Simulated assay, not measured.
Amino acid sequence: MRKLALASALAALSAGSAAAQPSGTMTLMAYSGIFQDNYTAVVIDPFKARHPGLEVTYFGPGTSSQMLGLLRSQRSSPQTDVVIMDTTTAAIACREGLVEKLTPAEMPVLDELVPLAREAGGECGPAVTFDHFVIVYDSTKVTPPPTSLKALWDERWRGRLSVSAPPNIQGLVLTAIVERMEGGDYRRGVDRAIARLRELAPLVQTFNPTPDGYSLILNDQVTFATGWNARAQLYHDQSNGRIGVMLPEEGTAFQINTINVVANGPNRAAARAFVSHALSAEAQAAFTDRMFYGPTNARAAPKPEALARTAVDPRYRDRVIPLDWNDIVRLRDAWNNRWRREVIAAGAR
Rank of each mutant, 00 (worst) to 15 (best):
E199T: 14
L203M: 11
A193Y: 03
I177K: 11
A193C: 06
L200A: 04
P202R: 01
L216F: 08
T226N: 07
L200Y: 03
E179A: 05
T175I: 07
Q221D: 15
D212I: 00
A195W: 02
R187E: 10
G183T: 06
L197F: 01
F224A: 09
G184S: 06
L197V: 08
T206F: 03
Q170V: 10
V178G: 03
V204Q: 06
L203I: 01
P202N: 01
Q170R: 14
N219G: 14
F224L: 11
A225F: 03
D212K: 00
L200H: 02
T175P: 04
L174D: 09
A230Q: 13
R180K: 15
D220W: 11
I217S: 12
N219C: 09
V173N: 12
V178S: 03
E182L: 10
L200S: 05
A230I: 12
I177L: 15
A195T: 13
Q221F: 13
F224N: 07
R196M: 10
E179L: 04
T226Q: 08
I217A: 12
Y186N: 05
E179C: 05
P202M: 01
P202Q: 00
N208L: 09
A230E: 12
G227L: 05
P202G: 01
N208H: 12
T206H: 02
R196G: 06
N219V: 12
R231T: 14
R231P: 02
V173A: 15
P211Q: 04
N229M: 14
N219M: 14
R180G: 01
V222N: 05
F207V: 08
L174T: 10
D220Y: 13
E199A: 12
I194T: 12
Y214A: 11
V173I: 15
S215C: 00
A225S: 12
A193S: 08
S215Q: 13
V222E: 07
R187C: 05
V173F: 14
T206E: 06
N219W: 13
R198M: 09
T175F: 04
L216D: 10
G227F: 05
T210W: 00
A193Q: 01
T175D: 08
L197I: 09
N229A: 15
